[in-house]
C-alpha cells in the first residue's frame, strides 16, 4: 500500500513537472522543472529495487541539467537564456509529433506481453538488468556511446569561437596566444 501511494504520488508529480516545462516562462524554471520530473521518475526505479540505477538517475540528471545551464550561456542566441521565453515552438507540428509519439508509447505499454507469474525478484536486479541490456548488445551500446561522445566533441569544436588556429596562428607553431594562461604553466 505504501509503495503504491509513493508510486502514484511520484508518477503524477513527474508528469506535472514535465508539463510545467512547457508552461513556465524562464529557461531556469524549465530546466529545473525537467530535473524535478527526472527525480520523481527515479523514485519508482528505486521502488523496483534498482537502487543503483535510481540514485544514478538523480546524479546524472542533476549534472546534466546544470551543464545545460552552462551551455545556455555559451551558445544560445538569447544570451544566458535568462529572458522570458517559451519552450513551445512550431505548435502544430509539435502537437502532431507528440500525439504520434504518445500513441506509439501507449500502444507499446498496452501491447507488450508483461510477465504474469509472481516469481520472487532476483537477488541483484541491477546486475540482471545490466546483463539483459548489455549482454547481447554490448557492441551496439559501445558504438552508440562512441558516436554520442564524438558528436559532443564535434559540436563543441564547431561552436567554439576560438579554435587552435586562433590560439597558435596559421602554422600552428609557437606559444598559444591566450588571454589567460592555463593552470599548468603552458
Amino acid at each position: 500500500m505504501a509503495e503504491w501511494t509513493v508510486f502514484v504520488v511520484c508518477a503524477v508529480a513527474a508528469v506535472a513537472a514535465g508539463a510545467a516545462v512547457f508552461r513556465v516562462d524562464s529557461m531556469a524554471r524549465a530546466t529545473f522543472a525537467l530535473l524535478a520530473s527526472f527525480v520523481f521518475t527515479a523514485v519508482p526505479v528505486l521502488l523496483l529495487d534498482l537502487a543503483y540505477l535510481g540514485v544514478l538517475i538523480v546524479l546524472m540528471m542533476t549534472m546534466e541539467m546544470v551543464v545545460m545551464a552552462v551551455f545556455m550561456i555559451m551558445f544560445m542566441m538569447n544570451p544566458a537564456g535568462l529572458m522570458p521565453m517559451t519552450m513551445v515552438h512550431n505548435t502544430k507540428g509539435a502537437l502532431a509529433i507528440s500525439i504520434a509519439v504518445f500513441c506509439v508509447l501507449a500502444a507499446g505499454a498496452l501491447l507488450v506481453p508483461w510477465p504474469r507469474e509472481s516469481a520472487p525478484p532476483p537477488a541483484d536486479p541491477t546486475l540482471q538488468l545490466g546483463e539483459a541490456i548489455m549482454g547481447d548488445d554490448m557492441l551496439v551500446m559501445m558504438v552508440a556511446g562512441l558516436v554520442l561522445f564524438a558528436t559532443m566533441v564535434s559540436g563543441v569544436v564547431l561552436a567554439t569561437g576560438r579554435g587552435r588556429y586562433d590560439r597558435y596562428g596559421d602554422d600552428l607553431r609557437g606559444r598559444p596566444d591566450d588571454p589567460i594562461r592555463g593552470g599548468v604553466g603552458r
Binding site: L56, L59, M63
Partner: peptide
C-alpha cells in the same frame, strides 16, 4: 545503503544545481 558511495556523490552534485540557483 548498498550504493552508499553513489548516494553520497549524488547528494553533493545536488549542490551544483543549488548553487547555480542561489546565484541566478
Amino acid at each position: 545503503l548498498s550504493i552508499g558511495v553513489v548516494w553520497f556523490n549524488a547528494m553533493e552534485v545536488l549542490l551544483w544545481g543549488g548553487m547555480w540557483l542561489a546565484g541566478w
